[in-house]
Design a binder for these strands. Sequence first.
DNA 1: CCTACCGATCGGTAGG
DNA 2: CCTACCGATCGGTAGG
Lengths: 205, 205
Amino acid sequence: MSPRRSAADALGTRQRIVARGLWLASEEGLEGVTIGRLAGEVGISKAGLLGHFGTKQALQLAVVDAAAELFAREVPGRVRGVGSGLRWLRAACEAWVSYLERGVLPGGCFFTAAAAEFDGREGPVRDALAGLDSLWQRDVRTQVRRAVRAGELSADTDPDQLVYELVGIMLALNHFLQLRRDPEVPARARRAVARLLGEAEPGGQ
Amino acid sequence: MSPRRSAADALGTRQRIVARGLWLASEEGLEGVTIGRLAGEVGISKAGLLGHFGTKQALQLAVVDAAAELFAREVPGRVRGVGSGLRWLRAACEAWVSYLERGVLPGGCFFTAAAAEFDGREGPVRDALAGLDSLWQRDVRTQVRRAVRAGELSADTDPDQLVYELVGIMLALNHFLQLRRDPEVPARARRAVARLLGEAEPGGQ
DNA sequence: CCTACCGATCGGTAGG
DNA sequence: CCTACCGATCGGTAGG
């Protein structure tokens, strides 16, 4: 009775585990995703769950991967085809704000929470988080440089400085959304982005 | 032999526990400050430690209190007497950046880390963190209003917007310091503050 | 402040 | 994928 699932079944189970783990991690932190609890929520045994990953660290890395895929789908994935330089930056920041505003994950931005949780430790999980953080900022910086070369942003723009300030806006957005549930805060994020990217007050909400 | 310590001894022990707990919490999170581990580091038994607080939650609240005192000493405490309005804002932001730059706590800003850890939960710890967060921003907002009234900041300044952006700068500072240990990042924070508070490039490093 | 203890849960393994 | 189990640690209590 229900022995030997197929490889497709096993993959499906694995995806369910990781998706639920990501959900949980955004609310309770990556360390709060314990094997026993996650197994209970997915409806399998601890040993069954562990069979998919081997160790808790491998499970954590799988959750980090899933978070990276979700972010890639929600932010850069939504602005593919809008062009480059300033147009890309404006669209990407709007997608970024919208992603946080819609509360795609119940606990807000997974990376912010996980970075705060793991930045004092060492090992592959911290390295994966830091690497993904760097990669995304590299993409943003590249588009800032293009915007400067195209004359869309002032020639004396410091790309690293602009990236720093955009990241700050998003960190503050996540911070206030999670800690205060203040519904006015996405509008503040949009206003701050508009000021940095040389736009007038944003037209649409 | 060594029974019945005096009330002063007990207070001293309590302070040692809380100080070590704050240290630990900044690196590993407030939930990572377990009773057994903290007792071991302080050199007393679990039951002895728990006698000072009763529950883990009371210990956590004591650590939050200690963090609030440290911040009050390091930031607003350093700018008492520099005046109000824009002078206060510039001095307070410099103290804030300096506090993070010097790495007073090994894991960076306790409140940022604890807020990220507890913002998805409910209860007195979350409430204490959110309340302290609000209080500090209220102080900053008050000084923004004074600066506007005094004509030191543009009359169309939105105080909440400015507070939002200042918080973002500090969150980004902590984020990059902890995740990348990039020594250039305090200079970026100072540049961002200077731009918001209408200063030229900061003179001193 | 201590020793001694409680039930629950942790990550993980053995063996199927 | 399961049951059954491991040692370690969790928060907390009893009693002194």
